[in-house]
């Protein structure tokens, strides 16, 4: 469905994503993990067409993804969400949902003015669909509330539901559970499973390993912009490179010791090594 071929992205002297190739199959759930600054979000921005790669190519369903037309992948069925949804304060929840749908008559200024019947019929169908999706994420009761007034977790659910208005084939999720409380987090996992059952492949950038382990078929671990592992989630902890990326390399001859404050010291020294 979605593939990256030898994709590199540099920002000045920093190579955020370094020669990454990957392939996402239909209905797969793939986790993107790695320490802070490893290039996960940059990779997500590249895959969704929000950033242009310095070199390499991204293809979705046979079409090249181009940052010149960042809106195009979404219309072809490749959609993304944001870590911070920042939903509009002066639009209602239901309006944001409709904005996620494809309403060609209403989206055209001419047809808005000249064919009110077609606009109304189209809108009625999408209103039903929107209310159905809102009910699934428990937001139906808030349909007429300002979207920007929802809690952070609810905004994430709404961002997800709006992305589903066009039944994407692949959905890219940027930290869907960051800042979301544990009970909502479990519900989020249930939603995502249901979305996959509906035929959508998911790529999830996530820090919560429990969440990833629960949900994903496969994990890609990134470190310093490169893919260092491509395996099942339960194999990650046994992967030497992944452990080193998170905790730092063990210097030969120095015994590993646990210092007060957990692994923070080991991690920061590793980051500098």
């Amino acid at each position: 469905m979605l593939s990256a071929h030898d994709v590199t992205r540099s920002f000045g002297g920093l190579t955020a994503v370094n020669h990454v190739s990957l392939e996402i199959g239909a209905r797969e759930i793939v986790g993107l993990v790695g320490p802070n600054g490893s290039g996960k979000t940059t990779l997500l921005n590249l895959l969704s067409g929000f950033l242009a790669p310095t070199s390499g190519e991204i293809r979705f369903d046979g079409t090249a993804v181009s940052a010149r037309r960042a809106w195009q992948p979404s219309r072809l069925g490749l959609r993304r969400t944001f870590q911070l949804p920042k939903l509009p304060a002066r639009m209602s929840v239901l309006e944001v949902m409709l904005a996620g749908g494809r309403l060609p008559a209403g989206a055209s200024p001419w047809r808005s003015l000249l064919t009110p019947g077609a606009v109304r019929r189209e809108e009625a169908a999408f209103l039903d669909k929107a209310m159905g999706l809102l009910a699934e994420v428990d937001l139906a009761g808030l349909a007429d509330h300002p979207a920007g007034g929802l809690s952070g977790g609810q905004q994430k659910l709404l961002g997800l539901a709006a992305a589903l208005m066009d039944d994407p084939a692949v959905l890219l999720l940027d930290e869907p559970t960051a800042g979301v409380n544990p009970s909502l987090r479990r519900r989020m996992a249930d939603h995502l499973r249901r979305i996959r059952e509906g035929g959508t492949a998911l790529v999830i950038v996530e820090h919560d390993m429990g969440f990833i382990g629960d949900l994903c078929d496969r994990c890609l671990a990134l470190d310093k912009g490169a893919v260092i592992a491509n395996c099942r989630p339960d194999e990650l902890s046994g992967n030497q490179q992944v452990v080193e990326a998170y905790l730092g390399r063990r210097r030969p001859g120095v015994p590993l010791r646990v210092v007060a404050g957990g692994t923070a010291g080991a991690k920061s020294s590793g980051a500098r090594a």
């Binding site: 809106w71 195009q72 979404s74 219309r75 639009m91 904005a99 996620g100 494809r102 709006a162 992305a163």
Partner: peptide, 10 residues
């Protein structure tokens, strides 16, 4: 209010 979100929604 959020041009990136508008782009992401196609």
């Amino acid at each position: 209010e959020n041009p990136d979100l508008a782009t992401a929604l196609g």
